[in-house]
Design a protein around this nucleic acid. Structure first.
Lengths: 148, 148
DNA sequence: CGGTATCCTATTAGATACTG
DNA sequence: CAGTATCTAATAGGATACCG
């Protein structure tokens, strides 16, 4: 049960025991702070190492499998495949296959995926624009504690 | 070389070979699409499983170590410690220790951390508000392909 | 081209025990 | 309280081979 499974523990087709599901809403501001909330998994798919970059790449428009692979530098076939399946399952990406020869498969964001990608890109843009601050903070931290 | 290391491969105090750093800017819309960009690591810290929840929890205000642990349901001491160190190193979180007895340590967002958390929270809020869509998409996907 | 299946390694996460 | 150290389990990730 590994290889190209949808990234999660199970939940692909199995159900979790009742004890793990109940405590979702509680008095928390956001459900996601409670473990075993489905939103936690979706957020993980969207923000994960490859998920965020895949969504970001697709924000500019539809891309084919190997186009995506070249855009998202460093992703392996396996991880891209897994990532796309997880995002498709969550309804963030739409897969359009044409059974021609050679085959052609297009991936594009759904409306929801587009909204998610937009927020992700805002975050990416913010972080990139402030990397100088981050780098300086790292130097300070390493100077103070890195010496140990 | 594991235990409480700052989540990354090395780079805590070691440098990567030059071959892995150069290709950062290129013609990409965002650096982060190129591997070996420092922004990729920072983004990973902020969006990671525990990083996003930690930043989200701190957005409401300063919290102590064990308060955070209770807020971020399911995080272990070790992972919270690691996560906080990574976020502090990147300049997203400020750590304020009082050497009293018993010790008291407060964690709060830096101005940059606050901006990052804000965008993160927008994402979290979006995903949570649309979980019904996600769940329906999952049912459709599993009905079509889960049968295999 | 657009993937899956398999095998294997590396990284991450958790439990537990211990310290200032 | 606020962690660190250590050991182990689970998961992510990569290389390779193969298929429609």
């Amino acid at each position: 049960m590994d290889s190209t499974a949808p990234t999660d523990g199970q939940q692909a087709s199995a159900e979790k025991p009742a004890t793990e599901r109940a405590d979702c809403v509680e008095e928390l501001a956001f459900d996601v702070f409670a473990k075993a909330c489905p939103s936690r998994a979706t957020l993980a798919h969207a923000t994960g190492r490859w998920g965020s970059l895949t969504l970001g790449a697709l924000y500019d428009g539809t891309l084919r499998f190997n186009e995506l692979r070249r855009r998202v530098d460093g992703v392996s076939e396996k991880m891209l495949s897994q990532t796309l399946h997880a995002l498709e399952r969550d309804g963030l990406v739409h897969r359009e296959a044409q059974l021609t020869n050679p085959p052609r498969v297009d991936y594009e964001l759904t409306p929801l995926g587009s909204e998610v990608a937009e927020r992700l890109l805002q975050l990416i843009h913010l972080v990139e624009g402030r990397m100088d601050e981050v780098l300086r903070a790292r130097e300070r931290y390493d100077a103070a504690r890195g010496g140990r």
